[in-house]
Each structure stands twice: as C-alpha cells, then as structure tokens.
Design a binder for these strands. Structure first.
Length: 269
DNA sequence: GGGCGCCCAAATA
DNA sequence: TATTTGTGCGCCC
C-alpha cells in the first residue's frame, strides 16, 4: 500500500496508540518477509517501552531503549493496532503485543516488506538514501544540480531514492502532470525553471496526499487499519482514457522501466 | 544504468 | 481457467 504519504499516515496513526506502551510479547508468525526477521527480537524487545516513532524515506523507525525496530511496508504492507484477542488474519506476519491489551500487527500479502533491527539506529539500507522531499534540503536548485549529464528519463530520475526518497510510481506520475513535464524527457535536458516548478509540485502533491490521509486516522485502529490510497486526489495515475483536467484530451498509458506511466500527451511537454 | 525477481491477489482475457 | 498487472527496491549483469 505505501508511498511516502501512506507511510507517514501510518506513523501518525501509530503515535497515540503505541508510544510509551510496553511490549509484553513479540510474535513472528513467519520467519521472513523480504529478509529474515531477527528471531532474537522476541527477547530483545520483551518488556521494552516504545520511545519514539520516526519515518525516514518509506521506513518506519520504532525506537526502544535497546535499539530501533525498522519496518518497511513493501508494496502491500499495512499496520494496525487491535485488541490482543482479535483473531489473527491471513498475512499478518509480525505482531507486537503490549501490556495494555493491544497488539500492533503487520499485514503484508506480497511479503516485499521487511522487519529489521538496529542497536544504534543506523542501517546499511538507510545509508545511501537521498534527501527527504518535504524538508528544506530539497530546494529549488537540488534536482537541477543532481540531474546534469543524466540521460535517464525524468520519471525514473525523481523515483531514484539515492536522489530524493519517497516519490513512488503514483506520485511521480502525478507530480510530472502537475508540472506539465513529459515523463520521457531526459533528466539532464530539463531547465532550471522547470525543475523549480517540479520541486514545488512534488512537495504539494505529497503534502496534499498526507492531508487527505489524515481524514482516515480516526479509523486507524479499527477492523480496517489500512489507510489505503488516497485515490480521490489522483489526476493521471490509473486514469487511462479519462479526460485531462486541463485540456480535456485523453490521458494515455505507456511503460517506462517496467512500470506504468500515465500522462497527458498534450499538456506534458 | 537497466532489467530481474521476490510473492500474492484482484482484475482481465 | 489462464494470464496480466500491481503502491518497492536490492541485487546482478
């Protein structure tokens, strides 16, 4: 389920439910997701209290005295907090039970996600990540400067997590539409002015999506703890043959780097 | 830098 | 019933 806004909403939903909660039991319902889930979490996290929850890129970082639990939701992961007696659902692979009688469960049908642990909070997977798109370091000159001499297409470029994190397939399409840039354009062949516009569009699109997701938070701990995708805000993604908001021509679908791209041939140049 | 493949389920043919 | 497609991303060539 996750792109950056969905992970951010998950984080915000978790904060009031699990901060300061003490772990009574850790359950691994299977040994691995994308990678092995460390078995020693069962002993390491026992009786540990959750201190903070942060997000870096699409990783959730849940901090304990003993170290940091690193969770990635992959393509289909979601987290919910339920009463401990709630029957376990299919694909709920990992569970943290708390002394207050609730349980945080990770559901991930495709199992592309990950549950990892780091004593000092650092991790190989976090080392080579680019800047956060909603922070000030992602400024108007950043993409322009990073894109010089890049021959790959601009969509792939903004989806490169070594450059900027958290821009997935949906919001890459949406941002390029909002900025009126053709996704097939070579990254190194886009002007400083257009990158400035694109930068603001990425920030706007992500911020809007987080805002839309915020409305789902009151239901976060209910039966459906999955905030889902905020489809009401999408202008091009999944909109093949639908009408462009601006010029009324048809949105088309192409394939780039084995991923679907949706765009308006007339508006995006 | 491009493409593969991990895995399951829903949509489509 | 069989095939295609999908919100991610590390790894291999």
């Amino acid at each position: 389920m996750p792109e950056l806004p969905e992970v951010e909403i998950t984080k915000r939903g978790l904060v009031p439910l699990i901060i300061n909660q003490e772990v009574s039991r850790v359950i691994l319902h299977r040994e691995n997701l994308r990678w092995a889930i460390p078995k020693n979490l069962i002993t390491i996290l026992a009786n540990q209290k959750i201190k903070t929850i942060k997000r870096r890129a699409k990783y959730l970082l849940i901090k304990f005295e003993a170290g940091t639990l690193i969770i990635h939701l992959g393509m289909s992961g979601s987290i919910k907090v339920v009463d401990i007696k709630t029957p376990l659902l299919k694909h709920e692979h990992f569970e943290l039970q708390f002394n207050n009688g609730t349980s945080m469960r990770l559901n991930d049908p495709r199992r592309f996600g990950a549950v990892l642990f780091s004593k000092d909070g650092s991790h190989k997977l976090l080392d080579s990540l680019g800047v956060e798109p909603l922070e000030a370091v992602f400024n108007n000159g950043y993409l322009y400067q990073k894109s010089r001499n890049k021959r790959k297409n601009i969509k792939d470029f903004i989806m490169d997590s070594k450059i900027v994190v958290g821009v997935g397939n949906i919001y890459a399409c949406e941002s390029l539409f909002m900025a009126s840039i053709n996704p097939q354009r070579k990254a190194g062949n886009v002007s400083k002015t257009r990158y400035k516009i694109l930068t603001q569009c990425i920030k706007d699109i992500l911020t809007q999506a987080i805002k839309a997701g915020g409305t789902t938070l009151q239901d976060f701990s209910q039966v459906d703890g999955n905030p889902g995708y905020f489809t009401q805000t999408l202008s091009v993604y999944g909109c093949e043959n639908k009408t462009c908001h601006f010029c009324k021509s048809k949105i088309i679908k192409i394939v780039q780097n084995q991923r679907s791209t949706f765009y308006c041939r007339k508006c995006q140049t």
